[in-house]
Amino acid sequence: MEEFLWVSFLVSLLAAGVRLATPLFFAALGGITNELSGVLNIGLEGMMVAGTFGAYIGALLSGSEWGGALGGMLAGGLLGLLFAFLSITLGGDQVVLGTGLNIFALGLTSFFFRSMYKAGISQFVPSFQAWNVPLLSDIPIIGQIFFRQVPLVYMAYMLIPTATLILYKTTWGLELRCCGEHPRAAETVGIDVIKMRYFALVLSGMLAGLGGTFLSLGQISAFTEGLVSGRGFIALAAVIFGRWRPPNVALACLLFGVADALQLRLQGFGLPIRYEFLLMFPYLLTLITFILFVNRGDAPAALGKPYPER
């Protein structure tokens, strides 16, 4: 009997971990893309924030959660474009701009949201519902953990091999990574570094926006301020922890997702640990893994350096 309880606890913990890891993974995949192209994107957090709001507006206007996903990706992509313009075309410092982007996204979404709703409470909009994958969801344990999720989670599964193939096995992926390793060499073999970095940042914004979408339309069906609260930075740490490889980064996200799920569950357990320390746990875990794994080398060589050199 006790064993059965443990199994069901673990299954629900891991299922929640997968769910909480998904928005992190979308954003992290965006982070991988722009970092491989040589741009350091501290603004991932802001792009997720824009995504949560864009998704809400999209769902409100279209009456569909998929319209919401489109809105979230559009909002994130626009921020990516802005970041690209400021950092690549105008040559601003990437770290400073990324920090500005985070403040910008928080301020702008809050400004528009509060202009729309004076009371600060949003309407309910269509949201993603869990969909059991036929056959697979009937597998004991595995099915319960992985295949009774919302469609965006399945999209994340499919993106793991797809992104790995595109980034590491195609010519385009090679060219992208060239831009991050040695932009001048890339230019001499005919790669348009500036165009590649623009593209990577817009794509990164769209993916982070999809991550934001998951937060407003995959877990709740509304918008509130503070939905992202640091997840963009956790995703950034996951990129480094997973050495820029989508499968490893997905595992890193899963680790942080499970940590989050664990602290949520332990809060209900009446343990002699104060809940503030439980809330702190995912950030602390991220910090520790970041410190331990950040300097293992193999970061793109030109990461964070503007091109053309100024």
Binding site: L86, L90, G91, G92, D93, V96, L97, T99, G100, L101, I103, F104, L106, G107, L108, S110, F111, R114, S115
Partner: peptide, 20 residues
């Protein structure tokens, strides 16, 4: 007009300064 317009203005100041 929501007060958070100040955050937007702050962010834009960062942009302006960053790009010089």
């Amino acid at each position: 007009v929501p007060v958070t317009i100040v955050d937007v203005i702050q962010a834009m100041v960062i942009f302006f300064v960053a790009v010089g």
